[in-house]
C-alpha cells in the first residue's frame, strides 16, 4: 500500500466521489438537467423577427394602405364579420370606413393592439398624403449580453450550485446518520474534521466539471458573453458552492431522517427560488422586502455572477455580494460545527 492509500482524508474524499458517480440520478440532476433547462429557455426566448400584426379593414383601399406597412397584414372584411374576428382575437384591429371618417376598433389594454393602431393610423395617414416633417433613422439593437438567455444563464448557474451543494451535503450526511454509519465512523480513529472536509473537497472537484459543462454549453450554443475575468468567475463559483455547502451542513446537522432533511432543504431553498432573481430580476419585488432579498445567498451569488459575466465587473466592484456570501459561509459552518449530531 502506498502512502496516499493510507491517507484518511484522501480515502474519505475518494469515497465521496465514488458514491456520487455511482448515483446515476444525481449525475442527471447536477450535470444534465441545468443544460436541458438552459437549452429549453434559450429556445423559448430566442430573439424572433418582429411579429407581423393581423388587422382587418372594411374597404379595399384601406387594406392596401395598411398592407403598405411591413408590420401589418390586412384582410378586407365586412364590419359584422370584422367585429366577430376582433372579439375572437383573430385580428387586433378593425379599420371601418365611415362616410366622414375612419374608425379604429381595438382593445386599448392590449399592447399589441395599441401598436397595431399606431401602425395602422400611420399607414392610412401616409396613404392619404401625410409626410414626416422631421427626418428620422432607425438603428436596430440585437446585442449579445442583453438577451434573455444571457440574463438567465448566471441565474441557472447560481441555482444549480445551490442545489448540488445543499443536496450533496444534506442527503449524504443524513443518510449516513440514519444508517448509523456516522456513529460507526466516529467510533473509529477517523478525525471528525476530515469527514466534513471530504465533502468540501469532493464538491470542489465536481464543481469544476459541473460549471465547465454548463458554461461551455451556454457559450458554444448561445454565445453567452464572459465580459469579466474568468479566474474571478471561478472564484465566485467556489465561494458560492462553499457557502451553500455550509448552509447544507447546517440544514443536515440535526436531522435524523431523509424525510426531515428533504423538508428542511426545500424550506430553506424555496424563498431563494422565488426571490433571488433566477428567471426574472429580483428588483421587481416591492422596495420594503429588497434588503431581505439582497441578504439571501443566492441573490448575492447571482448578482455577482451577472456582474462578472454581463457587465465585466471586478471583485472590487462586487464587494457587497462577496461579503454576503462570505458571511453565509462562515456563520452556518460555525453553528453546524457546534450543533452537529454525530450519532
Amino acid at each position: 500500500m502506498n502512502k496516499l492509500e493510507l491517507n484518511s482524508l484522501y480515502q474519505l474524499t475518494m469515497m465521496r466521489f465514488l458514491l456520487f458517480l455511482r448515483e446515476p440520478e444525481a449525475i442527471f440532476w447536477i450535470f444534465i438537467f441545468p443544460i436541458l433547462l438552459a437549452a429549453g429557455l434559450g429556445i423559448a426566448f430566442r430573439n424572433r423577427p418582429p411579429e407581423v400584426l393581423q388587422v382587418g379593414a372594411t374597404t379595399l383601399q384601406l387594406t392596401q394602405a395598411l398592407n403598405a406597412d411591413k408590420g401589418l397584414t390586412s384582410t378586407t372584411i365586412d364590419e359584422a364579420t370584422g367585429t366577430q374576428a376582433l372579439a375572437t382575437g383573430r385580428i387586433l384591429l378593425l379599420a371601418v370606413q365611415r362616410p366622414d371618417t375612419t374608425v379604429y376598433q381595438y382593445d386599448s389594454t392590449n399592447p399589441d393592439a395599441r401598436t397595431a393602431k399606431l401602425l395602422a393610423d400611420r399607414a392610412i395617414q401616409t396613404a392619404a398624403g401625410r409626410h414626416d416633417t422631421l427626418p428620422t433613422k432607425e438603428e436596430l439593437v440585437h446585442e449579445t449580453g442583453s438577451r434573455y438567455i444571457d440574463f438567465v444563464v448566471p441565474g441557472l448557474l447560481g441555482m444549480n450550485l445551490m442545489g448540488s451543494a445543499m443536496w450533496g451535503m444534506g442527503f449524504a450526511i443524513v443518510d449516513a446518520r440514519q444508517k448509523k454509519l456516522l456513529k460507526r465512523l466516529v467510533a473509529s480513529p477517523m478525525p471528525r474534521w476530515q469527514y466534513l472536509a471530504s465533502f468540501l473537497l469532493s464538491r470542489l472537484v465536481m464543481l469544476v466539471i459541473e460549471v465547465a459543462a454548463f458554461l461551455g454549453f451556454a457559450r458554444l450554443v448561445f454565445g453567452v458573453p464572459f465580459r469579466g475575468s474568468i479566474a474571478q468567475l471561478a472564484l465566485l463559483c467556489i465561494l458560492t458552492s462553499l457557502a451553500f455547502s455550509a448552509l447544507g451542513l447546517l440544514t443536515a446537522s440535526r436531522a435524523k431522517t431523509i424525510e426531515a432533511v428533504s423538508g428542511l432543504m426545500n424550506f430553506v431553498m424555496f424563498p431563494m427560488w422565488i426571490f433571488s432573481g433566477v428567471f426574472f430580476s429580483s428588483t421587481r419585488f416591492p422596495a420594503v422586502v429588497q434588503p431581505l432579498i439582497r441578504a439571501l445567498p443566492l441573490t448575492a451569488a447571482i448578482d455577482a455572477m451577472r456582474g462578472n459575466m454581463l457587465q465585466g465587473m471586478t471583485l472590487q466592484q462586487l464587494l457587497a455580494p462577496v461579503a454576503i456570501l462570505l458571511a453565509w459561509l462562515v456563520i452556518p459552518f460555525a453553528i453546524s460545527l457546534r450543533i452537529f449530531r454525530w450519532r
Binding site: 458514491l19 449516513a176 454509519l181 460507526r184
Partner: peptide, 18 residues
C-alpha cells in the same frame, strides 16, 4: 451499522484501514 451500499468490500476496508 449499515455500511455504504455502493462501495465495494475492498473500498470499504481501504477506507477503514486509512
Amino acid at each position: 451499522t449499515q455500511l455504504s451500499e455502493k462501495l465495494t468490500v475492498e473500498e470499504t476496508l481501504r477506507l477503514f484501514r486509512s
